[in-house]
Amino acid sequence: MYDLEDLYQEIVMDHNRRPRNFGEIKNPTNSANGFNPLCGDQITLQLHLKDGLVSDLAFIGVGCAISKSSASMMTEELKGKTLDHAENLFEAFRKMITRNPGDSYDSDLLGDLEILQGVSRYPARIKCATLAWHTLHSAIHDENNVVSTE
């Protein structure tokens, strides 16, 4: 009715209402906290990394539909995948969301995550979509384990 569907697609709304991998995991090897101070979004991400694989991961936190569904979809996408794959996805996702004119991104690689590409038309919401991914980056690379989008 209000043409909101390019932002709030049904899959996004579903992840928002029923976030996947929401909670904590046993024996996390890596974790990080992410904040979006201007919105008040907050996420804690836990990973279990083994032999270059993300064998398990989960998140908890509060946030808008975009940040929550982005985190939920990210966890679903990464479980059982290699760290290299995670890095490549992050790169493709970032390109898709912060799309500059003429920029292209790897649509095949992103798969379902492409549903969030409508966010690129809402500059105020870009940080919501990328928060989980920046937090992932921090958890993997152990950079003081707290990231802020500001």
Partner: peptide, 20 residues
Amino acid sequence: HPHDLGTFLDRMGIAVRTGH
């Protein structure tokens, strides 16, 4: 979340502020 509400209201032409 306030940001979702704000975005929805914007689509109806209603300008509100969200945040702190």
